[in-house]
Amino acid sequence: MSFDSFSEFLAMGNHGVYVWSSYGISFVILLLNVALPILARQRYLKNEARRLRREAQQ
């Protein structure tokens, strides 16, 4: 452990803003990359379900 206290860990020796913002932005982008394909899959399945129902009615 290279920090003595939690507040020091947050401050990062006056560079806290830079370190935490870059980690934050990066994790948001990583999560976005996971979320996009999951959403696309759900949208596709929903469309397919609707199409199948419509075909079943006809």
């Binding site: 290279s2 920090f3 860990f9 990062m12 020796g13 806290g16 370190v19 870059s22 990066s26």
Partner: peptide, 20 residues
């Protein structure tokens, strides 16, 4: 973020390299 020692020149901002 927590365990690596700070860089002697750049201080703690060097921790960004772990993503960069």
């Amino acid at each position: 973020l927590a365990f690596a020692p700070p860089d002697y020149q750049q201080g703690n901002s060097f921790r960004i390299i772990y993503i960069h």
